[in-house]
Nucleic acid binder design. Structure first.
Lengths: 187, 187
DNA sequence: TTAAATATCGACTGATCAGTCAATCTATTA
DNA sequence: TAATAGATTGACTGATCAGTCGATATTTAA
């Protein structure tokens, strides 16, 4: 296995379990099965590692979401796909989803250039524009819509986590109807 | 000013700005205007300081919310008060609100005993029970309702932060109607 | 095949930091 | 007043950690 990827995987696991502070680079290297120096060959600083791990994970999710889009889908169907894909990805990749939040509420986020962050949300903003233009969505500021949907997804995800697997898909389905009801344009 | 409180205040400011890792206890002591040893007189370890700061802030918010409750209020009015008080407290105490999330997405949360966390949410759960009993609220699991409302508040708060002060109260008002619409029992 | 470039190693270092401790100061109480 | 307890100090320490570096191995390109 690619050593760079092994380092990223190991760092993810350790950061999530022990936090940034609680995870020495020496431990990451050891658990990844590489020498101390090798880690710094791929990532100049610990900070770089933290940031690149974040960007890598975000890109992974974005690519999966992008692969799900189909121009012929109705707005509701398209939105449904984004919602389901995100929550199910989060359920399968709990560490990665947690790590995104972990970075989000840490000073490391401020170290990530605005254009990188913007690139990450571009696809979603474009979708919102399209949805609004179709007249199916309540008139409200893009950022508000984006933030509301995001936090709603977070809430449902967190609840689903505590429920038995057998009931998860049904709850996710109900969650979708709630969000859709929240943002759709009433006739 | 009480040295213990001064240490907590200083730690809050520094943790929010530089993170747990980026804030040496020596810096906290220095900025708080006390000796290194004094910090450890009040807080046995850095970890203790992090946890006690969290509990202190949560208690502060909970006490304010408790002071707003009035048994004669209707469910909608009571819920409205909780919502407005929380968001406005968060706007005035941005550091404290941010710190709560910061701890929430860190391994430090796991160090806080379950009974302490339970004590913190007891009031909200009791309110939810009452609201459901009144028949004004959709039938759904307590935890789901709690989580959804919480994340919705988070979302609106985050959006309001980016908006000019002059428009904030109006947005908060609209946000309330959206949440209420989300959870109220349709006739 | 040879040379250059890149990857890997792990011992090492300088700096930093959490936490200690003995000494001193400041209430509190008897 | 004397005695006890608690508060405060800051120099100090042992451990840890991020990052370095020179040596060696491996891959790539000429």
């Amino acid at each position: 296995m690619d050593k760079e990827k092994k380092i990223l995987d190991t760092a993810l696991k350790l950061f999530v379990e022990f936090g940034f502070h609680g995870t020495p680079t020496s431990r990451i290297a050891k658990d990844a099965g590489v020498a101390n120096g090798t880690l710094f060959h791929y990532f100049a600083t610990k900070e770089t590692l933290i940031k690149e791990l974040y960007v890598t994970i975000k890109n992974e999710l974005n690519q999966i979401l992008a692969s799900q889009t189909n121009p012929t889908d109705s707005i509701k169907v398209a939105f449904r796909k984004l919602y389901f894909t995100t929550i199910n990805w989060a359920l399968v990749n709990q560490d990665k989803f947690y790590y995104i939040q972990q970075v989000h509420f840490s000073p490391h986020l401020a170290q990530i250039p605005a254009e990188v962050l913007h690139e990450q949300s571009k696809m979603h903003i474009a979708f919102i524009e399209k949805a609004k233009a179709s007249g199916n969505i309540k008139i409200m500021h893009n950022d508000l819509l984006y933030t509301l949907v995001n936090s709603q997804i977070m809430g449902i995800y967190q609840y689903v986590l505590t429920q038995p697997t057998s009931q998860q898909q049904e709850i996710i389905e109900q969650g979708f109807e709630m969000i859709w009801d929240l943002i759709k344009q009433k006739k």
